[in-house]
């Protein structure tokens, strides 16, 4: 789509002690697009996200943000760049209201006093900008919201800070059908508003419903990053389970991996 990707990762390595979790991972994320990050459990998706958001330091490799090399050493660095993560378990406080949650840790103040009117206005504007209509009062406690509404608040919280890149970790995992549709619509709207979105998901239907590109991780390696329109459902499943599919993915030599392609093939056959 656009010439410079918003975020480009090159050759990212990450080990926890003797276990190499990410090896030579490359990823490009474009503004205005939803990039789906897929992979089986333990493929390294969460680790990759934590590296991008500054929670884990990387061992090797580089980050390019808007074409400029940057160093992300802490969550604060990531936030300064405009990277926001919406976690799987939401990270909202039940006993606080929507406005309080959206500004948690970054409250607007005048002097030492909290500036509630300004926060409430900004929160209302952000929700309106995302065409969120499911919330009746900004002053209701998060405990009274449904799962979908909570996810909406969590996403709106991420958008509030003029963020450029929003990473969503399994945003629909715990939601019902209608609520999933609602959240996916919101995800699409974020990208349409010009943000870069990375969506981690296990659900192929979700991935194909909203994403522009799909990046597949297999045992810590980025095996493919392709346009969603250029790939089929079955191919993605093969990439996730076997690391390759036809011309895509790893070369036939599986390298140093213990898991041979043989059993993986049979799994992908089963899925189909």
């Amino acid at each position: 789509m656009s010439a410079t990707p918003l975020l480009e990762l090159r050759g990212i390595d990450k080990s926890f002690g003797p276990v190499q979790v990410l090896r030579d991972v490359a990823l490009t994320v474009h503004p205005g697009e939803v990039t789906a990050l897929v992979g089986d459990n333990g493929a390294g998706k969460s680790t990759l996200v934590k590296c991008i958001s500054g929670i884990h330091p990387i061992d090797a490799g580089e980050f390019l943000f808007n074409g400029e090399p940057v160093h992300i050493g802490s969550p604060r660095d990531a936030a300064t760049l405009g990277i926001e993560v919406v976690y799987q378990d939401l990270a909202l406080c039940d006993n606080l209201d929507i406005v309080q949650n959206m500004f948690l840790g970054r409250e607007k103040r005048s002097g030492i006093v909290l500036d509630e009117p300004t926060m409430e206005q900004l929160a209302a504007e952000t929700l309106a900008g995302l065409s969120i209509r499911t919330v009746t009062s900004l002053r209701q406690h998060v405990s009274s919201l449904s799962g979908g509404q909570r996810q909406t608040v969590a996403i709106a919280k991420a958008v509030l800070w003029n963020s450029k890149l929003v990473i969503l970790d399994e945003p629909t995992a715990a939601l019902g059908v209608a609520q999933t549709a609602q959240v996916l619509e919101l995800v699409r709207r974020l990208a349409d508003n010009g943000l870069a979105v990375v969506l981690i998901s296990h659900n192929m239907n979700d991935v194909f419903a909203v994403s522009d590109r799909i990046a597949a991780l297999y045992l810590g390696q980025m095996v493919a990053q392709v346009k969603t329109t250029d790939i089929t459902h079955a191919q993605v499943v093969e990439l996730i389970t076997a690391g390759r599919s036809g011309g895509l993915g790893l070369a036939t030599d599986p390298g140093s991996n213990g898991d041979g392609p043989q059993p993986a093939d049979s799994i992908s056959g089963g899925v189909r």
Binding site: A91, L104, E107, I112
Partner: peptide
């Protein structure tokens, strides 16, 4: 009720992990 310190106390009491991730 009116300072961010107080707000953070409620946040930690409500969900410690969320508070930590919010940079508190």
């Amino acid at each position: 009720q009116r300072t961010s310190y107080g707000r953070h106390i409620y946040a930690v009491g409500g969900n410690r992990e969320a508070a930590r991730r919010a940079g508190i």
